[in-house]
Design a protein around this nucleic acid. Structure first.
Length: 294
DNA sequence: GCCCAGGTGAAGC
DNA sequence: GCTTCACATGGG
């Protein structure tokens, strides 16, 4: 077989892939929409994604022969229909599914995902994006970019962040999250904690390891387990998912606390409950604008 | 001014 | 075990 020759673009044929919903659904915070394209950084490479009918085209700044990194990130090879089929048949779930069919889960870099969600607590998605943009501009490395697009930067490594002061991090507008990020970066960089090994553990053990890090509780751990490691039943419950579960499933119960909702979700949403969770989250966040459009 | 945002950890009961 | 509160910052 001939090795594929290096190229600047590659087109992938896809079905049921809503790129816009996927990249704007609060999994990753590094995507910016420019005209009809999405600009981001994946695996240390600047990349532009364009969605066509039944296809996604990736464009990079320097020719590459192997596109596996973007295939993996976008999860282009998963059996989407097989996942959606496992969702419960109840009305709320089917409404959410219909509202944003084609929404996918990404497979992100564990460190970037962990650091990003440490910065996410009680912040709106736009603000998380602002913080991460500042962090990458100040402490990441500049990457080759295609003209005429603005400069892009890698996500700073844990080791790089250990050389920051807390004040420098706070200056990225992250507030009280700065010491959490700094301490976690130190733990990771000192190899007291191997992110590599988390994926081989059971869900419960992996979650226990992550929640041992400062600033990482159940919710942030579940985000990393789902968005970076692909644990299919990690089920992050934030304020939106909480609202979705209470309003859609327990409209007249006053005593549904976090713990009860976790046990409900574990038995109700099936073997891909994490995927189902992302549909509920995105549906709740966007249903008002959808209502306006239709 | 107020309430809220992909929460967590510590203190109080 | 649970509930309450402080913690920065910016949007609506």
């Amino acid at each position: 077989m001939n090795a594929p020759s290096p190229a600047l673009t590659c087109t992938f044929f896809v079905r049921d892939y809503d790129l816009a919903a996927t990249l704007s659904s609060g999994q990753s915070f590094r995507w910016e929409k420019k005209d009809e394209s999405w600009i981001g950084v994946v695996a240390g490479k600047w990349v532009k994604l364009d969605s066509g009918p039944g296809s996604i085209t990736a464009t990079v700044a320097e020719p590459v022969a192997d596109w596996q990194w973007i295939i993996h990130y976008l999860q282009l090879e998963i059996g989407f229909e097989d996942i959606v089929r496992t969702f419960p048949a109840d009305a709320p779930m089917q409404t959410a599914l219909q509202a944003c069919r084609g929404l996918r889960l990404l497979r992100q870099d564990p460190w970037e995902c962990l650091a990003s969600f440490i910065l996410s607590s009680t912040k709106q998605i736009v603000q998380i994006q602002q913080i991460i943009t500042l962090l990458t501009e100040r402490f990441g490395s500049p990457l080759p970019v295609r003209a005429p697009y603005p400069p892009a930067f890698s996500f700073p490594s844990a080791e790089r962040l250990t050389r920051c002061t807390e004040a420098e991090l706070r200056a990225c507008k992250m507030g009280f999250r700065a010491p959490y990020l700094l301490e976690t970066a130190r733990t990771i960089a000192a190899s007291q904690f191997e992110l590599q090994r988390i994926g081989a553990l059971s869900l419960e053990d992996a979650r226990a390891r992550l929640t041992g890090l400062p600033g990482v509780g159940r919710k942030i751990a579940d985000c990393v387990l789902l968005f970076a490691y692909g644990f299919p039943t990690a089920f992050p419950v934030d304020v939106w998912v909480m609202k979705a579960l209470k309003q859609l499933y327990f409209p007249r119960s006053r005593k549904m606390n976090l713990k009860r909702l976790h046990s409900f979700s574990a038995e109700h949403f099936g073997c891909h409950s994490g995927y189902a969770q992302q549909y509920l989250f995105h549906y709740m966040r966007t249903k008002h604008e959808n209502a306006k459009r239709s």
